[in-house]
Design a protein around this nucleic acid. Structure first.
Length: 262
DNA sequence: ATGGTGGATTCTCCA
């Protein structure tokens, strides 16, 4: 059986409803995980999604900021959320499919501008968030699980347009990369995207601030798909739908896809 | 070193 999934930081699910529908219609993943919905759960426009066959949704939301949702064609059971680092933000939700696969959907804090927790509280919160993720997965090692989301870190040199120029830029600093690696290791997570696409520059985010994002191509791979070895050991394939960054009223993130032979 | 854009909400925060 094949199972397909996409993860997409949508930067307002209400404003972006048309392109979410476009993605569901054209690409039709079994499951779509969204981050930065920026909406209370009861204001997420679910009707159109349901009409396309996505009749199941689990979500966490708050007014204006953050928010995560899992849209699914398949029945999915809400198995809770965790408030890592005690921020009181809607940044995580988990669901379980009837085949027993658990899906974690994360929106890791961006971390502010300065990569120094002494002067920038947000950077400390980002590191603490990752540390608590690490400890949680270490204490309860996941099985038959997939973790996706905007992790707000581009770990590899070829996950950014310039490793050297981004070493002191939040999202690519060595301390963040180390925290992400420890979280990954603690859960036994395999980076599915990079297992499938091991070579070459790979981005999932391009700033709104570039004059021409496509020509400048100063991207970063902030959005990730991980799986536990019991899943990664079977076949899988991945792609990033860069074209979606050029759709009408786009998110600054492109959706990352993975298909699994379960 | 700076400012550039975009979204939700507001007398500005966040990314």
């Amino acid at each position: 059986m094949s199972f397909s999934l996409a993860t997409w930081n949508i930067n307002s699910v209400r404003l972006r409803e048309p392109i979410v529908l476009k993605l569901l219609q054209e690409e039709a993943p079994d499951v779509l995980c969204l981050q930065e919905c920026k909406s209370p759960v009861d204001k997420i426009p679910t009707e159109g999604f349901a009409a396309l066959g996505y009749q199941h949704m689990i979500a966490r939301g708050q007014k204006g900021y953050n928010g995560v949702a899992i849209l699914s064609k398949l029945p999915i059971e809400d198995v809770g959320d965790k408030d890592f680092a005690g921020l009181g933000h809607a940044r995580h939700v988990a669901g379980r499919l009837e085949n027993g696969v658990t899906i974690h959907n994360f929106y890791v804090p961006a971390g502010g501008d300065k990569p120094d927790r002494e002067v920038n509280e947000k950077f400390g919160q980002k590191l603490d968030y990752l540390t608590e993720m690490r400890d949680w997965f270490h204490g309860d090692r996941p099985e038959k699980s997939i973790l996706v989301g905007d992790l707000n870190i581009a770990p590899r040199e070829d996950d950014v347009w310039s490793h050297k120029q981004l070493l002191k830029v939040v999202s690519h600093t060595p301390i963040e990369v180390e925290h992400l690696a420890q979280t990954q290791e603690a859960g036994g997570w395999v980076d599915i995207t990079r297992q499938d696409i091991p070579e070459g520059l790979l981005y999932s985010w391009w700033s709104y601030r570039a004059r021409d994002w496509d020509a400048a191509d100063k991207g970063r791979r902030l959005d990730h798909v991980w799986a536990t070895p019991d899943i990664s050991n079977a076949g899988h394939s991945s792609r990033i739908l860069r074209a979606a960054r050029g759709w009408e009223k786009p998110s600054d993130h492109a959706p990352v896809f993975a298909s699994f032979d379960l």
